[in-house]
Simulated assay, not measured.
Amino acid sequence: MYVVELSLKLSPMPVAVQRKELEAAQALYAEVKQTLESGQPRLLELHCEKEEGKRISLLSSELVAVQMYEKSATGGGARRPGFSFDG
């Protein structure tokens, strides 16, 4: 399972949607990234593959960042979202 997480302006909690396949997650990530690069506000409608009825629409001008990561099956997986230094 892969998670595409969106950070929004003035919101401490990100919006996350899940994709079952890596290719689907990469395609969504690329779509959101392209929308951010265009600089033109548009409405993005996202749905979650894990919970079929879960949908959200948001204005792209409110996006600050997008990240993609693999959701591990175990609680202490090796891949963590975001960036960190291991020391």
Results as ranks from 00 to 15, higher is better:
Ala73Pro: 05
Met68Ile: 05
Leu58Ala: 12
Ser72Ile: 04
Leu28Val: 13
Ala30Asn: 01
Ser84His: 15
Met13Gln: 08
Glu70Cys: 13
Gly39Glu: 06
Cys48Ile: 00
Gln34Thr: 04
Glu21Gln: 00
Ala78Asn: 14
Gly76Trp: 12
Lys71Leu: 01
Glu23Ala: 08
Arg79Cys: 03
Leu8Tyr: 15
Arg80Val: 10
Arg55Thr: 14
Pro41Asn: 03
Pro81Gly: 00
Lys54Val: 15
Gln26Tyr: 10
Leu43Gly: 12
Met1Ala: 15
Asp86Ala: 13
Leu59Phe: 10
Met1Asp: 13
Ser72Met: 07
Lys54Leu: 14
Ala27Asn: 12
Val3Asp: 11
Leu36Gln: 09
Lys54Asp: 10
Met13Lys: 05
Phe83Cys: 12
Tyr2Gly: 05
Ser38Asn: 11
Glu51Ile: 13
Glu23Asn: 08
Cys48His: 00
Leu59Gln: 12
Met13Thr: 07
Ala24Lys: 05
Gln40Gly: 11
Leu22His: 01
Leu28Met: 14
Ala24Met: 08
Ala24Asn: 06
Glu51Thr: 15
Leu6Phe: 03
Leu6Arg: 00
Ser57Trp: 01
Glu21Asn: 02
Lys20Val: 04
Val17Thr: 10
Lys50Pro: 03
Gly76Asn: 10
Lys33Gly: 07
Gly77Lys: 03
Ala65Gln: 15
Gln26Trp: 12
Arg42His: 04
Val32Leu: 04
Ala24Val: 08
Lys54Cys: 14
Phe83Ile: 14
Lys71Glu: 01
Lys9Phe: 11
Phe83Val: 14
Val17Ala: 05
Val66Arg: 06
Ser72Leu: 06
Leu10Ala: 07
Tyr69Ser: 05
Arg80Trp: 11
Arg79Lys: 05
Phe85Gly: 09
Arg19Val: 10
Leu6Ile: 01
Ser11His: 15
Glu52Ala: 13
Thr35His: 11
Glu23Pro: 06
Gln26Asp: 13
Ser7His: 00
Gly75His: 08
Ala78Lys: 14
Leu58Thr: 11
Leu58Trp: 10
Arg19Asp: 08
Leu58Pro: 04
Ser60Tyr: 13
Ser7Asp: 02
Arg79Ala: 03
Thr74Cys: 05
Ala27His: 11
Ala25Glu: 04
Glu52Cys: 11
Gly76Glu: 13
Arg42Ile: 02
Ser57Lys: 01
Met68Val: 04
Glu70Arg: 08
Gln67Trp: 02
Glu31Ala: 05
Glu51Ser: 14
Val4Phe: 08
Leu59Asn: 15
Glu62Lys: 09
Ala16Glu: 01
Tyr69Cys: 08
Met1Val: 14
Ala65Phe: 10
Glu51Trp: 15
Lys33Thr: 11
Val15Thr: 04
Arg19Met: 12
Leu44Asp: 02
Thr74His: 06
Lys71Val: 00
Cys48Glu: 00
Glu49Trp: 02
Pro41Trp: 01
Arg80Asp: 07
Gly82Arg: 06
Leu6Ser: 01
Glu45Ile: 13
Ala25Asp: 05
Gly77Val: 07
Gly53Val: 12
Ser61Ala: 11
Gln34Met: 05
Pro81Thr: 00
Gln34Glu: 06
Val3Glu: 12
